[in-house]
């Protein structure tokens, strides 16, 4: 197992308000063939951390400090063109909002094919076959390649994104809530597909999710974020079994049980502020 990604001291803030740290001093590293799940509060900086790695932060935001090293190379030194080559080919990404990352005027087969042509040089019959295979792997009939994004259901769009992101068998996959719109049976199929890539290709995975059932099933390690910071990280057994930080404990207390019988109880933030002060 070699190191695939190392994030050190990553800090992100709005250009106009550099003191408002949306991501604050985040550090962790991912090895080949491993899966890290990032969990945490809504708005805690999980997506911004992922977008920073891809070099896709909005122009209104800025990485104010920290370094991101991928396969031994500091991504800060990369030109836009070099980053474009890495995206899709060496790092795949599934975005949280599928509709904003799919092109509405191109059919989905074309969009999946584009990645394959651009990075692997596939064309013609071979391309068509591969696109069909990818769609089938995510549970969509191959003949839906002709459909446009707005002709697909929420979960189907999400799966088109997944097919695009793994098309080139990237060394690392960043998946931001990739299965939120999927029912459990399709979700299980997707998780098996990703696990297979992980074993076969030794792919490393950074997986953002709110679903602790998924975390328990797929994570090797877990990173917990709260208000822009990493408050806890460790093996999945440790974080889920013996959480140390009060926020992690409070969050785990809110997890619904599989039967859905446990009463609903959100975190008592007044209490949390007191104990973490």
């Amino acid at each position: 197992m070699t190191e695939l990604l190392r994030i050190e001291g990553l800090t992100v803030a709005p250009v106009a308000q550099p003191e408002r740290r949306l991501v604050n001093n985040v550090s962790f590293s991912l090895k080949t063939g491993r899966t890290i799940c990032i969990v945490g509060e809504s708005g805690s900086g999980k997506s911004l951390t992922a977008l920073s790695v891809m070099g896709l932060l909005s122009p209104a935001l800025k990485r104010t400090s920290g370094s991101i090293v991928f396969q031994g190379q500091d991504l800060a030194g990369f030109s836009n063109l070099a980053m474009q080559d890495i995206r899709g080919k060496r790092i795949g990404m599934i975005f949280q909002e599928p509709m904003t990352s799919l092109n509405p005027v191109l059919n989905v087969g074309f969009q999946i094919g584009e990645t394959l042509t651009c990075h692997l040089g596939l064309t013609g019959k071979a391309l068509k076959v591969k696109v069909g295979e990818l769609l089938e792997q995510v549970g969509i009939p191959a003949d839906r390649a002709n459909s446009y994004p707005d002709e697909m259901s929420g979960g189907q769009r999400q799966r088109v994104m997944i097919a695009m992101s793994i098309a080139c068998e990237p060394a690392m996959l960043i998946a931001d809530e990739p299965t939120t719109a999927l029912d459990v049976t399709v979700q299980a199929q997707i998780l098996r597909l990703l696990a297979d890539l992980k074993h076969r290709m030794n792919m490393g995975m950074l997986f953002i999710t709110h679903d602790f059932g998924v975390v328990a099933d797929i994570a090797d390690d877990v990173v917990v974020m709260f208000r822009g910071e990493v408050v806890e990280m460790g093996s999945v057994e440790q974080v889920l079994g013996k959480p140390r930080h009060p926020y992690t404990r409070a969050l785990l207390d809110c997890v619904p049980d599989a039967e859905g019988r446990k009463p609903l109880k959100p975190i008592d933030y007044a209490w949390l502020n007191e104990v973490s002060a």
Partner: peptide, 13 residues
């Protein structure tokens, strides 16, 4: 339509 799918478990509750 899937109103709480993108929420952390506390906000979901």
């Amino acid at each position: 339509d899937e109103p709480v799918s993108a929420l952390d478990v506390s906000i979901q509750a």
